[in-house]
């Protein structure tokens, strides 16, 4: 059972205090998007074995949504960070690279 530190209140919460929210950093496609874009936004999800970014809500706590960088296979947590970020911040990237030197960010 995971433990994640909520970046908004610093509480080290266990999984039962959290609510999972799936993949992080999805970019909303609104009415202007075409069918393919919208389908991708709504349904296409990464399912990597390894580094992954995901949404969690500190539901039994401060109520804030936050993001976590985690290895889906080893369950290593590289860090948690604010949900108000379009991409993982530099320190999270650095933490991932420290353990996974070959890992490359796929955003620009």
């Amino acid at each position: 059972m995971l433990i994640l530190t909520c970046p908004y209140c610093g509480v080290q919460a266990e999984e039962t205090e959290l609510h999972p929210g799936g993949e992080a950093h999805l970019k909303r496609v609104g009415p202007e998007g075409d069918d393919a874009e919208f389908e991708s936004y709504l349904f296409a999800r990464r399912n990597p074995k390894g580094v992954h970014f995901e949404r969690w809500r500190h539901a039994y706590g401060c109520g804030k949504w936050f993001l976590a960088a985690r290895d889906t296979a080893t369950l290593q947590v590289f860090g948690t960070y604010s949900a108000q970020t379009p991409h993982p911040p530099a320190e999270i990237v650095a933490a991932i690279r420290a353990s996974r030197p070959d890992w490359q960010p796929d955003w620009t």
């Binding site: 909303r28 809500r57 804030k64 949504w65």
Partner: peptide
Amino acid sequence: HGHMEDWLQCEWW
């Protein structure tokens, strides 16, 4: 309530 907070916190922050 969670749905509202989700959109407010994660999309239209």
